[in-house]
Amino acid sequence: MFKKSKLVSALAVAGVTLMAAQAAQAQVIKIDGSSTVYPITEAVAEEFQKAKKNAIKVTVGISGTGGGFKKFCRDETDFSNASRPITKAEMELCKAAGVEYIEMPVAFDALTVVVNPKNSFLKEATVAELKALWEPSAQGKIMKWNQVNPAWPDAPVKLFGAGADSGTFEYFTEAIVGKAKSSRGDYTASEDDNVLVQGVSRDINAIGYFGYAYYAENKGKLKALPIVPPKGGAAVGPSEEAVIKGTYQPLSRPIFVYVKAKSLQKPEVKEFIEFYMKNAAVLTKEVKYVPLPAAAYTGNLEHVKKNKIGTVFGGHNEVGITIEELMKREAKM
């Protein structure tokens, strides 16, 4: 009895393997990439499938901005979520594989520097002070608050920050230290921002940074630090208004979705982009990011229609770009 069913199962496995290789794939829109952009794209995908009554399938994965581009340039995905512009190396990778893409900024994020709510001595911070805390030469040396600013107390500093593989880490180090990926290593690093939220909320001497959404959802447990802009002036805290005005500097950053030009031949991909751009403003706000002006979204659609391939960043990450500057640049394309 049993051996018979085992034979059958062995045959079935062989059958599965053979048939699977030839199975016609149903149409699926594949998206992968940054965990920062994920909440927005997920919200759009969720609403899109509801609106289409599940006639079009969308999948969204998280493999980080870099990991996402690797798959994208290998021609495996239709869209790539990115919390920074595509880099030179990635552009070349895509080029080698013949993958062309259209860049679409979808929202702004305010990287937020947070401290414990019981922390009374920190009201604001300058970029120079943050740099003194985070630069590589501070490793093992700057261990107390008063080493950075004599007005601060003689207490140990507990640092919490993004892990080295994330776009957030890249952007923060570039904006604060001046060089991407250049940071001290003796801090609590985690790719999981909730670990950082917990860490800062439990230690009065803690300071950390992550995307605005994690601060917005945990406002009771954290205090956001206003940053003195590098050009001078009053310190500005992270908020939608400050990002729109371009005063939250230098930690405001645009986030992107890249679409493969070849995928645009598929009608469902076009439909998805139209849906994305039409609903991005509302959904972006819902997941606690700062939406772009309506013109940015219509501009993206325009680029898609005219098939404007490439990036406006030329393979570099740029610090402190405002929504206005971004719009101007996109318009010139």
């Binding site: 059958g15 048939m19 699977a20 199975a23 149903a26 599940n54 006639a55 399938k57 999948t59 969204v60």
Partner: peptide
């Protein structure tokens, strides 16, 4: 994947996308 709001196709049924699934389509 992390976000996926559909199930693998049931053999020999036609999904909302109008594609009729074969016996082993679900494994892919």
């Amino acid at each position: 994947l992390t976000f996926i709001a559909f199930l693998p196709p049931v053999p020999y049924t036609t999904g909302a996308d109008g594609v009729t699934a074969g016996l082993f389509d679900w494994v892919m």
